[in-house]
């Protein structure tokens, strides 16, 4: 009898939850997808075009393509970190979403914003430990997948 009662209560709760979800779906405000996509395209595109322009200038100075790429990455990370420190990057991110998260400047923002946030908890268990709270997963799975692909490449070669 107790089992039956519990079963009825559970299914009633499930029904209520499903009904409520349906109501929320009707009323929930929709994110402005088209505007967000255009903003992401424009800002993301600008960041990449800007990096390409730096790349071209550096190659003009005579540095080989490979080294020039490394210098560009260093410059872009610096700019991302600087704009985060100046309190500008979060406003860019608010406007452009993925457009400023995906480029390497977004990665710099994730690390620097975390480091800044936990400075008051000290340099050891604050800044150093919490620096990777957002960026950590990217590093872990980035390195893991590069190892997996490396092993696949070794056997297919």
């Amino acid at each position: 009898m107790a089992d039956l009662k519990k079963e009825i209560e559970d299914s009633l709760q499930q029904y209520k939850e499903a009904e409520y979800q349906e109501l929320i779906q009707q009323l929930r405000p929709k994110p402005p997808v088209v505007k967000n996509a255009l903003a992401a395209f424009a800002v993301g595109g600008f960041i990449c075009a800007f990096a390409q322009a730096i790349n071209n200038v550096i190659i003009q100075t005579g540095l080989p393509q490979k080294e020039a790429g490394t210098v560009v990455v260093i410059i872009m990370i610096f700019l991302g970190a600087l704009l985060t420190g100046l309190g500008v990057y979060d406003n860019i991110g608010k406007f452009s979403g993925a457009g400023s998260i995906i480029p390497i400047t977004g990665f710099a923002n994730a690390i620097v914003s975390s480091a800044m946030e936990w400075k008051r908890e000290g340099y050891l268990f604050g800044v150093a430990a919490k620096m990777f709270t957002i960026a950590g997963p990217v590093l872990v799975y980035g390195i893991l997948s590069s190892v997996v692909i490396g092993i696949v490449y070794y056997f297919l070669k």
């Binding site: 979060d90 991110g93 608010k94 994730a110 975390s114 946030e117 957002i134």
Partner: peptide, 17 residues
């Protein structure tokens, strides 16, 4: 924000709700 969500300077978009 820092306890429940993200660092305040992180460049993310908030959901409409």
């Amino acid at each position: 924000e820092r306890q429940f969500r993200f660092p305040t300077e992180l460049g993310n978009q908030r959901s409409p709700s």
